[in-house]
């Protein structure tokens, strides 16, 4: 084999090896997200869907044609109560508004939200209370159990860079803050 052929073979081998090296390096590319120095406030919990049950005796018209054994003693409908979630960090509002109602079938209301926050020590205020809406029977005795699902909290949190401040709801219904990282 002449020199040109050797050179060609060496080039072919080098290119194949180079392609493999490119694959290896593209397979492991360090990337630093912009949030590296920041923290995150995360709120996550779920409660049984808060609702008011309104019942009344059926009207004559509603019972007409219904066989005796199938006549209901009362007709009920359920009104879901929206909840309002407010988050303040260092006095600044991160969020204030109704929570999205999910899982109506499963009769749950789930809260899950994430907010980037600067690292450091902050005053955190959380309020999760039933939202008043027109037509809501605030005087209903059932409202007491709905209100009991609500909760508020005011505390100081230390948010370490790159770490998460997590607010969850304990078994007793009280909000619990957990966070990791230096300074905790």
């Amino acid at each position: 084999m002449n020199a040109a052929n050797w050179l060609k073979r060496a080039g072919a081998a080098a290119l194949a090896a180079g392609a493999m090296v490119v694959i290896v390096f593209l397979s492991w590319v360090p990337w630093r997200g912009p949030e590296g120095d920041r923290s995150e406030l995360r709120v996550s919990w779920r409660i049984p869907a808060p609702s008011l049950r309104h019942c009344r005796p059926p009207t004559e018209a509603e019972l007409e044609g219904v066989p005796g054994h199938m006549r209901p003693s009362e007709i009920c409908n359920e009104e879901t109560v929206a909840f309002h979630l407010t988050l303040l960090i260092g006095g600044d509002t991160l969020r204030a508004g109704p929570t999205r109602l999910t899982g109506r079938r499963a009769r749950t209301l789930a809260v899950y939200e994430r907010f980037p926050i600067p690292a450091g020590s902050h005053a955190l205020e959380v309020s999760f209370v039933p939202a008043s809406s027109p037509g809501l029977d605030a005087a209903s005795p059932q409202m007491d159990s709905v209100r009991a699902l609500g909760t508020t909290m005011s505390t100081r949190v230390v948010a370490a860079p790159g770490h998460v401040v997590l607010v969850t709801r304990g078994d007793s219904g009280r909000l619990v803050v957990s966070s990791t990282g230096p300074g905790r």
Binding site: W28, P30, G33, R38, S39, E40, H163, S179, T180
Partner: peptide, 9 residues
Amino acid sequence: LRISADVPL
């Protein structure tokens, strides 16, 4: 409980 910031992709 950490933000995935330094990630080898």
